[in-house]
């Protein structure tokens, strides 16, 4: 199932990047590849069962003092 999903994502990306490249929008395609690479890396890592730091935990750490202040 996941394999098909990756296939879908990659083929869509391929078409889009090629289109961007053809319009010679290098900046666009660079950021496309960058964000997509980032997303896919995290996705694969989480698929492999590696612990991904949860951004919400980070936010919680910042706001915990505020919360205890109000409590």
């Amino acid at each position: 199932m996941w394999v098909i999903l990756y296939g879908v994502i990659l083929s869509i990306s391929w078409i889009q990047i090629r289109a961007l490249w053809k319009q010679s929008l290098k900046r666009d395609s660079f950021f496309y590849i960058f964000t997509m690479g980032l997303s896919l890396t995290i996705l694969i890592l989480s698929q492999l069962g590696l612990p991904i730091p949860n951004p919400l935990d980070g936010i919680s750490i910042v706001y915990d003092p505020v919360h205890s202040l109000f409590q």
Partner: peptide, 14 residues
């Protein structure tokens, strides 16, 4: 268009 068409065909396939 073609891109969207493709993505949805693939999605349906999925």
């Amino acid at each position: 268009r073609r891109l969207l068409l493709l993505s949805f065909t693939l999605l349906f396939l999925l």
